[in-house]
Simulated scan of single mutants.
Amino acid sequence: MTERKAVYYGQVELIPGIVCDGYVLDDDTAVTRSRGTAELLGMDHMTLNRVETTWPPKTLKPFVDKGLSVETTLVKVVAKNSPHKGRKIVVYNSNIIETIIRTYVMASGHNALQKNQLHIGKRCSILVCALTRAALEASIKQACGLTPNIQQTAQKNYIDAVKLIKEFGFTCTAGDDIAIKKDITQFLNVPEGTLNSFLRKHKSDIQPIRLNSATIRSFGGKASRMNGYHLDDVTKIALGMDSVIGIELKKQVFGQIGSFAKPDTSAEV
C-alpha cells in the first residue's frame, strides 16, 4: 500500500477556541489530526482512538449504514509549515468525521444515547447546525462571485446561541457581557443551589471571573467577594440545564431533533 503524505497544512477553527490541525494529502483528501478531531467532537482522545476497533457501539448501530466502517489513516507529514513535519500522525478524513457526526445526531434525535454519550450528541448537533448554515451561506456567496471565509462563517453560526440568549431577554449586571449568579438564576428560574451544583460539576468547563470591589459596588453589591460569568459561559449553563427556558433555547439552537440532557464530562463513544 502506498504511504500517503500530508502535503498541505493549516489550522482549522470551526468552533471558537477549538483549533484542529488540518491537512490535505497527496491524493487531495482533506483530513484532521486525531487529537483535534476528538476535541472538535467533544470526545476523549483515547476514546476516539478506540473507534476503529469498537465502531459502532451497540447504541449507535441502528443508525449506521451497513458495511460502513470507521478507519484511521497513518500519514507522513511533509508540509513545510507543519510543526509535525517529518513525523507520522493518525488522521481522520472528512467522510469519517461526517459519519460520526451524523450517527450521533440521528441517535440523539431518537433518544438512543446513553448518559455518557449525550454531550457528544449535543456537540455534533451544534456542528451540524453551524456547518449547514455555513455551507449554504458560502455556496450562495460563491455563486454571486464572492470569496467567503468558511471558518468565520461556521464560527459565527456556532455562536448564534450567545446572540439568542440576549434576544430571550438576558441581561448582565456587571456589564461587558459579565453576569452574576442572580442574573442567571432569575433568567433560568432555578434556585441558587441548583446553579451551584451545576457549576461544581462543570468547574473545568466554566471559569468564574473574580469581580473587584469597584465593580461590585457599581451595581449596588455589598459582598466583599463575588464571581462573575462571561456570557459565553452563561450560554453553556443555559443550554446545559433543563430549565423551561433552557429547553426552549435548545430547541431554537438545535432544532426539533430531540431533547438534550445535561452534558456529561465523561467521554465515551
Rank of each mutant, 00 (worst) to 15 (best):
M1W: 10
T2W: 13
R4V: 15
K5H: 15
A6Q: 11
A6R: 05
Y8F: 11
V12Q: 12
P16C: 10
G17T: 06
I18Y: 10
Y23E: 06
Y23N: 04
L25N: 05
L25M: 14
D26S: 12
V31T: 11
V31A: 09
T32Q: 12
R33S: 14
S34H: 15
R35T: 13
E39M: 11
L40W: 10
G42K: 08
T47A: 15
L48A: 05
R50Q: 11
R50C: 01
R50Y: 02
T54R: 12
W55A: 06
W55R: 06
L60V: 05
V64R: 01
V64A: 00
D65K: 15
K66R: 13
V70P: 02
T73P: 02
V75K: 08
K76D: 09
K76F: 04
A79N: 00
N81K: 06
N81V: 01
S82Y: 06
H84Q: 12
G86F: 03
I89G: 01
N93Q: 02
I96S: 03
I100F: 04
I101H: 02
I101D: 02
T103D: 03
M106A: 14
G109S: 11
G109D: 13
H110G: 03
A112D: 09
L113V: 01
Q114D: 13
K115M: 12
N116E: 12
N116L: 14
N116W: 13
N116C: 13
L118N: 12
H119M: 08
G121L: 02
R123L: 06
C124I: 05
C124A: 15
C124V: 08
S125G: 10
I126M: 14
T132R: 11
A135C: 12
L136A: 11
E137Q: 14
E137T: 10
E137L: 12
E137R: 14
E137D: 10
E137N: 10
S139A: 10
I140H: 04
I140F: 11
I140E: 09
A143T: 07
P148D: 01
I150C: 13
Q152L: 14
T153Q: 04
T153K: 05
K156C: 04
K156H: 13
I159Y: 08
D160C: 08
L164S: 04
F168G: 02
G169N: 00
F170N: 01
T171N: 07
C172M: 05
G175V: 05
A179Y: 05
I180S: 00
D183W: 01
Q186I: 03
Q186W: 00
F187G: 03
N189H: 07
R200Q: 15
K201I: 06
D205V: 10
Q207D: 11
Q207Y: 11
P208Q: 04
P208I: 00
N212G: 01
S213D: 15
S213A: 12
T215P: 01
S218F: 03
S218R: 05
G220H: 02
A223M: 07
M226S: 05
N227V: 00
G228K: 00
H230Y: 09
H230E: 10
L231F: 01
D233M: 04
K236W: 06
I237M: 08
A238T: 04
A238Q: 00
A238C: 11
L239N: 05
M241T: 06
I245P: 03
G246T: 00
G246W: 02
Q252R: 09
V253F: 07
F254D: 03
G255F: 04
I257P: 01
F260E: 04
A261G: 13
A261I: 11
A261W: 09
D264N: 12
T265N: 14
T265I: 14
E268T: 14
